[in-house]
Amino acid sequence: MPDPLADQIEKQVLTWSAVALPNEAAGAMAAQLASVIEGFEALRGTLVFEDEPSSFEAALQATKE
């Protein structure tokens, strides 16, 4: 059965990047981005950092011994 997310991604990548679906595995991996979307949804509103924005390089220096 066609995966709606995979279909959506196929159109999106073709439209925005002019890259066609190269193989079956690409479609399957694209469909697995559903778990990334779920991960982002789960994080919404859960992280509050007082010092945002902050550069990563500055954080490396700030957290060294």
Binding site: Q12, V13, A26, M29, L33, F40, P53, A59
Partner: peptide
């Protein structure tokens, strides 16, 4: 297959992931 999936990730997600990297560390 792997690279293809990367092209589908919205820029807003990528920027959010990068901007949170320092605070999370």
């Amino acid at each position: 297959a792997r690279i293809y999936g990367g092209l589908a990730i919205p820029a807003a997600y990528y920027v959010e992931a990068l901007s949170r990297r320092g605070p999370i560390l």
